[in-house]
Design a protein around this nucleic acid. Structure first.
Lengths: 243, 243
DNA sequence: TCATGTATACCTGTATACAAGTATTATAAA
DNA sequence: TTTATAATACTTGTATACAGGTATACATGA
């Protein structure tokens, strides 16, 4: 698909994806990682040439990315918006908003099945930590929250999640990769926070839920400066990533 | 664009829209009005033939509609989901969620400019009522809330709004058209609710805001059964609509 | 030097062509 | 009559072609 063989997005997650999806995922990673800078103008033709595909899947990808608010489609070309710290905070505003909403539904439900499922995911996270698999860890992290959100069966909350997810996934992926190298011991705390979250669901304890959610955010978000600092290095060292 | 000359969506709102957008708006109206029933399978080729355009804009439209959760893209064809009462309630859950969030931001801001803008919109609504222009009224109603949401400058809240807006707009449009015929006097109450909303913003009164918002929802949502009942009639009488 | 017009090279939006996959229907065999 | 298989009529995904439109650079005139 691409003349350069460097992919930021885990290729094994794209086994059944269309070309358009692949392009979208890869472009998203490059934008969020800073490899493609903000205010860059992307042209369909150039992207098509670079990815060695036709304009059709490129168009599809650009439309997707524009609905995620990381690019802006204009008359001539697509302008990269990217993620500033403001946007990252905004994403977490929204996450807090929807997860709080979801929690209010959960307290009225039987959550035994859900907590079982979540426990399984946390086990997976532990294994990912053990084997230092940042991508797998990120995957399970995102899955954890998605599982909670899906459990309340609310199609428009799910719609919000679906719009947010790709950007978040990319951001978490990049963030975790850096921190697996630099701050390995953080992960025991992240896992612990997720276990706290499960407890909150089990005991229907709002405060505990908010607390663990906030701490979880701080864990990803708090050291954002570190991430940006490490970003260039990460991007340039991206060829080591699996594909 | 269409061999049949009946459009549910106001054509003058589409002056600068692309073919894909036009198709999306029209399809959305047909789906939400019930003209196209739930579980119907839409094929790109058939739609292209019906709208007398190529598959490209149809594809674009279907992608848009799928991101709005009113159709589901599958291996063969797009399945119409439509709007059941459950989904309408869910939409208002989300509106309540984001407008409450926005209000919390507003109470920390200078809102004099905003309330001025909103007053203007309410004036417009009154004129629309006076001249029995259901479409114009709907437009101003949606604009009212969009103006509030935009005022806090939160790109991801705006993203949610942008995803919700088209479906809501269509729903409100259809709902108002029926009620302008059947329940003309309701509109003075709706206008009053919006004035209450402005007061709430001016006085930073959370409870008043929630109250007016709820009543506003009830006004649209409460008589949903009526809407569905009138739906068929409306759809069949759609050729009278402006274009 | 600055303004205006024009050629040119690019861009998107739409149409069309083609390839590969899937459901369906008809046909053949048991 | 039922089952299995092959033909066929669809479907989407991608590539390509074409038609406007837009920006840029350059030349021409004041």
């Amino acid at each position: 698909m691409n003349k350069s063989k460097e992919f930021l997005y885990p290729q094994k997650w794209l086994s059944k994806a269309s070309t358009g999806d692949r392009v979208a995922h890869e472009l998203r990673m490059r934008i969020i990682s800073g490899l493609i800078e903000s205010d860059t103008t992307l042209s369909e033709n150039k992207l098509a040439a670079e990815f060695e595909v036709s304009r059709s899947p490129i168009r599809e990808a650009l439309k997707t990315l524009s609905s995620e608010n990381i690019i802006r489609l204009e008359k001539m070309g697509a302008i990269v918006i990217g993620l500033t710290e403001k946007e990252i905070e905004e994403i977490y505003d929204v996450r807090l908003l929807i997860e709080t909403f979801v929690f209010e539904r959960l307290v009225k439900m039987d959550t035994s099945e859900l907590t079982m499922e979540l426990s399984k995911i946390v086990e997976m996270m532990k294994v990912a930590v053990k084997y230092q698999d940042a991508d797998e860890f990120s995957y399970q992290d995102v899955l954890f929250h998605e599982t909670i959100i899906r459990s309340v069966d609310h199609s428009y909350i799910l719609m919000i999640w679906n719009n947010l997810k790709p950007v978040m996934e990319s951001f978490i992926l990049l963030s975790m990769r850096v921190r697996f190298k630099e701050k390995y011991d953080d992960f025991t705390r992240i896992v612990k926070n997720h276990e706290l979250y499960i407890d909150a669901i089990k005991t229907k304890d709002r405060n505990l839920m908010i607390k663990s959610l906030h701490e979880n955010f701080d864990d990803v978000q708090g050291k954002v400066e570190d991430l940006w600092r490490s970003q260039q290095m990460l991007s340039k060292g991206a060829e080591q990533q699996d594909d």
